[in-house]
Design a binder for these strands. Structure first.
Length: 874
DNA sequence: TATCTCACG
DNA sequence: ACGTACGTGAGATAA
């Protein structure tokens, strides 16, 4: 039998240590977890380093101990346990139960005493004892059989005190630690000690005399008048202190070493608690193949003969490719699975098989996919149309929690406790080493992903139903994915000639500006480098820096604009920046993105934003310039893809403010929209108390900024920045505004308190956003979460509405047998290309569909325009 | 790879 | 007193 090894932990001390060593972490349900997390890290290290056969965590019991009856001020003046820590103790206890580690506490005794008593019996039995604490007092227990480990700094760094180490460090034996405390006291436990005696003096005395008792026996020979005086006057205090510092080794404990046998953790229970606390990294560690051994073998058949496979009515599929851009990357094959089988079909085989293609396009054959839009758009490029998507892992995960960052199937699977799938990186490698593995490996990997989808579907659908989000997911996001897939595949025709022509003009002007700027600066430098520009402006020219960034002077546009009157170089720099941006991002950037078909195919990210909006990448077509005329011209390059067709654009007018009016039920705001007034003018009238003719353009501009601010979750600082006024003035505007629109004020207050209560906010269609920081004690984090709570339901509901409009629009175009194609969505606008003869019809049905997407207590308004290019749709 | 800047709604 | 407006993506620079 292996020799016993007992590890005794000082629970309270380590929990405190972990709590203060780590920042105040919270998980997304708002529970503080730093102490539990830190404690767990320590525990794991200890288990790995010590490999104990027996284990105990000792806790302090209650408020009073036998030491208090000796000295009532014992541990007096201690700060109350922070509530953020107190709330974590129940979790710690649960966690230790799951680890199957014995926990013990004894009335009137401290953890030290339990540990002392057990270490003594361990000593007597001759077994190895390891004590772990953050409290140096425990070092008095070190002996030949007992090692005392004290946390050094951080949480995992332990200092091991053997008798030898104590001698090295202090020049005394472990039992003399008690005498040392008796003489010097211990501020943290409020043990008085002898005044004027610190560590140095105490050690000097002990090295000479040995114990407190011996010191007093030979008091006459102690050198130093003041010291002798202090010792004489405080003899009782010294004995009392020694008594207080002595750890009880004969406490009346009711357990013995044999009760502490440690069987190892109950993996399932530990996992459950990690999940509850959202300890993702610890979960990952538990589930990583290196820890748990290789993942289960699976049987994937690589299909050579498509006639031979059994095509079921419901299957999970996964389209495998090396790169994330499914609109350009080569597909290697498709894996399919159900309860019976897992197969991998190389893309070449799929393309050749009418039987397979038919199955894929059959609406009645239900497909569960990792990312249905990617599956649809990628296979379409190989002449395979996929219909009948019934489950989408990516969307389901996103709707359940938009903050879950989905990088690959493995990452989501892990979150839902499914581990038989590898990260893409593990199969393909990363960086320069990224390469296509052999087909067998590929088939295995893709097969596992399909299996993950198959197994995760019920779990996720259950969760969505539970949160009343199934409809949002199934009736809004799923159909939208298909529509977006079509839009991405269609692409937007882009006239390279127009881009190049604009580019040429820009380059000429940029060269001119460059030489003017160099001349004014007196030297050439890189204008695009904020560092170099900052040096030129604020050091060489000597302008006054207005704002700083982490790394130096800020040279952002709003800063430079304030300096415009100080030096003529500024306006040239601003123009240079503006044109430079157009040239690099839009002319050069977009030109590179034009495919062989003469079109740009952006990808809409449907599972990314925290509010429910889409985003657009590779390239981003949602931020094509419009505000300044020079940039707006870029839009002339976006043209219809068919001769005789036109571009048609429609946008919602003031959709976010209308949503706010509806959600807040503010009477004034509702009636303003019902009467079809210009909302900013109306706001100005109400806030400034003037009639329509009394609204100056400046008043309207202010009102508009305040309206924006309200939507963003107003703050006086933010408004002051946008209007370039003082914070005080901005604050006044906000006050007046909220008095004028009491419904809005009420809404803002209600939504924040609702978020505090539930931990999340929702849109009208039940899209959720969790806001763990809303209860943070950190002002910045909390304020940010509060503004988010105000903004997300508004921005998110607007996103819900346009998504619904897109689905309705797609259906309507089909119903009406129209050729018009939806191309882009830019948050509150839709862009189409259409045959000229369909324009008249679009003028009617587009606003009709958009305005009736969702019924609010205020009307929705959509406006349209059309022309030969996107530029002309104004 | 992080930071700054700037384009959009 | 704290230091920010909400949501994105991309290019250039500098480490």
């Amino acid at each position: 039998m292996t020799k016993k090894k007992i590890v005794l932990l000082d629970g309270n001390s380590l929990a405190y240590r972990a709590f203060f060593a780590l920042p105040l972490l919270t998980n997304d349900t708002g529970i503080h977890t730093n102490a539990v997390y830190g404690f767990t890290m320590m525990l794991q290290n200890i288990l790995a380093d010590e490999k104990p056969t027996h284990m105990l965590v000792a806790w302090d019991a209650g408020k009073t101990t036998f030491r208090h009856s000796t000295f009532s001020e014992y541990k007096g003046g201690r700060q109350k346990t922070p509530p953020e820590l107190s709330e974590q103790f129940p979790y710690l206890r649960k966690l230790l139960d799951a680890y199957q580690i014995t926990q013990y506490e004894l009335d009137q005794y401290e953890a030290d005493d339990i540990i002392g008593t057990l270490s003594k019996s361990g000593d007597e039995e001759g077994v190895e004892v390891v004590i772990i604490s953050g409290d140096k007092d425990l070092t008095q227990l070190a002996s030949d059989h007992t090692t005392v480990c004290i946390t050094r700094k951080g949480i995992t760094d332990l200092e091991k005190y053997t008798p030898e180490h104590v001698m090295e460090k202090y020049g005394i034996t472990p039992p003399q630690i008690i005498d040392m405390k008796g003489l010097m006291g211990d501020a943290s436990d409020n043990i008085p000690g002898v005044p004027g005696v610190g560590e140095k003096t105490a050690l000097k005395l002990l090295k000479e005399y040995g114990t407190v008792e011996k010191v007093y026996e030979s008091l006459d020979s102690v050198s130093g008048k003041k010291l002798k005086e202090n010792l004489t006057e405080n003899e009782e205090l010294a004995y009392l202190s020694k008594k207080l510092a002595t750890i009880e080794v004969d406490a009346p404990i009711t357990i013995s070493i044999d009760d502490l046998a440690y069987p190892g953790p109950d993996e399932e229970n530990v996992k459950t608690i990690y999940e509850e606390l959202k300890f993702k990294s610890l979960l990952d560690k538990m589930e990583s193949p290196t820890e748990n051994g290789p993942i289960a073998e699976i049987d994937v058949q690589i299909v050579a003969n498509p006639e031979a496979i059994d095509l079921a009515d419901e299957m999970a599929i996964h389209v495998e490719m090396m790169d994330e851009n499914y609109l350009s990357t080569e597909v290697t094959g498709v894996s399919m699975t159900d309860d019976e089988q897992t197969v991998f079909i190389p893309i070449g085989v799929l393309q050749q098989s009418d039987r397979l293609k038919e199955w894929f396009s059959d609406e009645a054959k239900k497909k569960y996919a990792t990312d249905s839009k990617a599956a649809y758009a990628s296979l379409l490029r190989y002449g395979v149309e996929v219909n009948g998507f019934e489950f989408d892992l990516l969307l389901a995960t996103y709707i359940a929690n938009p903050s879950s960052s989905y990088t690959d199937v493995a990452s989501v699977a892990k979150e839902f406790n499914y581990s038989d799938v590898q990260p893409d990186e593990a199969v393909y490698g990363k960086g320069a080493k990224k390469a296509l593995p052999e087909e067998k490996v590929l088939a295995d990997h893709a097969g596992r992903k399909a299996q993950a989808v198959w197994k995760l579907r019920p779990v996720l659908e259950e969760k969505l139903r539970e949160n009343d989000q199934f409809e949002l997911y199934h009736e809004l996001e799923m159909p939208l994915a298909n529509i977006l897939g079509k839009m991405e595949s269609t692409g937007v025709k882009t006239d390279l000639g127009i881009l190049q022509q604009i580019g040429l003009q820009l380059s000429t002007r940029l060269t001119e500006l460059e030489s003017i700027i160099y001349e004014m600066a007196g030297q050439p430098f890189n204008i695009n480098s904020p560092k170099q520009l900052g040096e030129i402006l604020f050091e060489k020219i000597g302008l006054t820096p207005i704002k700083k960034t982490k790394t130096g002077y800020s040279t952002a546009a709003d800063v430079l604009e304030k300096l415009e009157s100080e030096h003529e170089i500024i306006s040239f720099i601003l123009t240079y920046r503006q044109l430079g941006k157009l040239n690099s991002t839009y002319i050069e950037g977009l030109s590179k993105e034009i495919h062989e078909d003469g079109k740009i195919h952006t990808r809409f990210q449907q599972a990314l934003t925290q509010t429910g909006r889409l985003s657009s990448i590779n390239p981003n077509l949602q931020n094509i310039p419009i505000r300044l005329e020079e940039g707006r011209k870029i839009r002339a390059a976006f043209v219809p893809s068919e001769p005789g067709w036109l571009m048609f654009a429609a946008d919602y007018s003031q959709i976010e403010l209308r949503v706010l009016a509806h959600m807040s039920q503010d009477e004034k705001m509702i009636s303003a929209f019902r009467e079809g007034e210009d909302i900013h003018t109306k706001t100005a009238m109400d806030v400034f108390g003037v009639d329509k003719d009394g609204v100056s353009s400046d008043m309207r501009r202010t009102a508009k900024a305040v309206n924006f601010g309200i939507v963003y979750g107003i703050s006086d600082y933010g408004l002051s920045q946008s209007l370039n006024i003082t914070r005080k003035e901005a604050g006044k505007f906000i006050d007046t505004y909220l008095k004028t629109f009491p419904g809005v004020k009420q809404y803002m207050e209600d939504i924040v308190s609702e978020a505090k209560m539930k931990g999340y906010v929702v849109t009208m269609m039940n899209r959720r956003r969790y806001l763990p920081d809303i209860t943070s004690s950190n002002f910045n984090l909390r304020s940010f979460a509060e503004r988010t709570a105000m903004n997300t339901p508004i921005q998110g509901t607007a996103a819900d509405i346009i998504k619904k409009a897109m689905i309705d629009m797609d259906a309507r175009l089909k119903d009406e047998n129209m050729q018009t194609r939806m191309l882009l969505q830019v948050h509150d606008e839709l862009i189409f290309e259409a045959p000229e003869e369909e324009i008249e019809k679009l003028k009617k049905i587009v606003p009709e569909v958009m305005e009736s997407a969702l019924s609010l207590d205020v009307p929705l308004k959509a406006e349209w325009a059309y022309g030969h290019s996107w530029y002309e749709t104004k």
